[in-house]
Design a protein around this nucleic acid. Structure first.
Length: 104
DNA sequence: GGGATGACGCTTC
DNA sequence: GGAAGCGCCATCC
């Protein structure tokens, strides 16, 4: 496997792996956990470039306010995976971070 | 080096 | 609630 474009991806992937089933976190939060406040975009990129055959629970990472950022098929898949873990969605299609959010 | 791009986020209208 | 604008910053061309 080729070396990651950015070594920080390793930290980001590790942080995402820490999120327990049934809980979610936002891109911004993950960025803060790895010591990169304000770099939510970098987390997004790390999710986009997941290593092959990894068990990283990418679907537990949502946009700010518990919103799903993915469009189309990918977004529906993410929602299904979360609901399968018991995550509740509001009628507006968002996750209540107060109850389903996770703090390390 | 300059400009465009993006699984983001916050404020404003 | 939704669309638009701006800030952010690594990466690519």
């Amino acid at each position: 496997l080729s070396a990651p474009t950015n070594p920080r991806f390793e930290l980001i992937w590790a942080a995402v792996t820490e999120i327990p089933p049934g809980r979610v976190a936002s891109y911004g939060q993950v960025a803060e956990w790895v010591g990169l406040p304000g770099r939510a975009r970098l987390v997004g990129k790390a999710m986009k470039e997941l290593p092959e055959r990894s068990t990283i629970p990418w679907y537990r990472v949502l946009g700010a306010g518990g919103r799903i950022s993915l469009e189309g098929e990918a977004g529906r898949l993410q929602r299904e995976l979360l609901e399968a873990e018991g995550v509740r969605f509001t009628p507006a299609g968002r996750v209540d971070l107060e109850t389903s959010g996770w703090k390390p």
